[in-house]
Design a protein around this nucleic acid. Sequence first.
DNA 1: TCTCGGGTGTAATCAACATTACACTTGCTG
DNA 2: CAGCAAGTGTAATGTTGATTACACCCGAGA
Lengths: 226, 226
Amino acid sequence: MTAAQKKASQVTEPLSRGDKRRAAFIAAARQVFLEQGYEAASMSEIVLRAGGSLSTLYSQFGDKQGLFIAMLDARVRQITETMGVELSAHTPVEEGLRRIGMQFTSKLLEPEALEMYRLIVGLARKFPEIPREFQRRGPDKIRQALADYLIDRKEAGEIRLEDPYRAATLFLEMTRSGLVSRALLDEEVRPDAEEIRASVNIVVDMFLHGIIRYQPDPGSEKTAKS
Amino acid sequence: MTAAQKKASQVTEPLSRGDKRRAAFIAAARQVFLEQGYEAASMSEIVLRAGGSLSTLYSQFGDKQGLFIAMLDARVRQITETMGVELSAHTPVEEGLRRIGMQFTSKLLEPEALEMYRLIVGLARKFPEIPREFQRRGPDKIRQALADYLIDRKEAGEIRLEDPYRAATLFLEMTRSGLVSRALLDEEVRPDAEEIRASVNIVVDMFLHGIIRYQPDPGSEKTAKS
DNA sequence: TCTCGGGTGTAATCAACATTACACTTGCTG
DNA sequence: CAGCAAGTGTAATGTTGATTACACCCGAGA
């Protein structure tokens, strides 16, 4: 804590001794927490993998909870950064949605991301602040980006749109539906890129046209793409 | 009181001494597990609340895990039974979807259901069979019912439909999106009936018409209902 | 070189439980 | 009423793992 703040003020310090220790601890903690879960993870095990000593671990993070939070923090930051959705502002909806859908789904299906999510959900009772922080730093960012994109597309006349945030939420959730929420509960669900693509395509289609589509007058016109 | 209960229950089922003990244990276990989580829950605490003795608890369930599974089993059975979706086979889609959406969402938003889900997700690593069982006995049942309903509606010509299961999954997931998945991560999200209704309506609309709706030719004709 | 502050290893502490053991009650059933 | 099968209370047993204490070590500045 104090150490971190001190370093923060000194701009761009190149990884001092302590920082390296800290990074090693966090990396090991990530491994162990993900493998064993919060309760079952043992501090000694973490030290074993990180090298260094138990004493140093405690002096750096205070206690188990502190270590956990530090680890989660670093991890969520890292994941959402990676997901930095590059929505080239003027891609046509269908294409744009497919792209973001793929990116989102693939990321969330990574075993590590799944496990992290399980951890967070499971600890919601014990540390209520954690999931909230996670929401803000993770999903909300993506949602915001997607909403902006949808607004842009609306202005381009491609879609009707009453509530961009709601719509963005819906899309992301639909995206998760087919695979992610199943994978969350079943380790053995491990879709490959093709399955993901297929799932995303269906979602995009449904999101755009709904289940009814041009019903009264099937022949009129098609959406640019296909 | 005890006598009365004994007689009353004897009419329907035997409910022997042991059965009552068992029920009491399970009820207490539910409380404690939900409040404290699996690891933190203590067997003694459960006995404390249930009355009876530690020895009996062990003789009935073997060990902690056994008790947990028995509890979960009873609970999931109970919840999904309650949710017994009465889709009067020929309700018009819009009405039918609203109804099932309300029922589903309301149920899942109950604090206890949320907590149960958190438990299950959090334990996916430790007991991989549990979430699978849960899927089969819970969500899959609902999904099946909804799929059947959608097929019926298709045959009535109300909707286009390529993959009923996928569509059913999508609908249920969309339904969860707005509120449930948020509530899962934030204890303080406690929508009332009106909010739920609003959320469901939007979902139904999106599910049916998509985000584009009759765009090329707005004036032609409307879907039977309204 | 001497000295100090973080680092390091190792070995205590200390509490919490799960799980068992044991000796004692009860409530039927014949 | 005897006897047994299940239930009860209480007190072990044993393990596990967070957290702390302690004695030692190494690299930078006086």
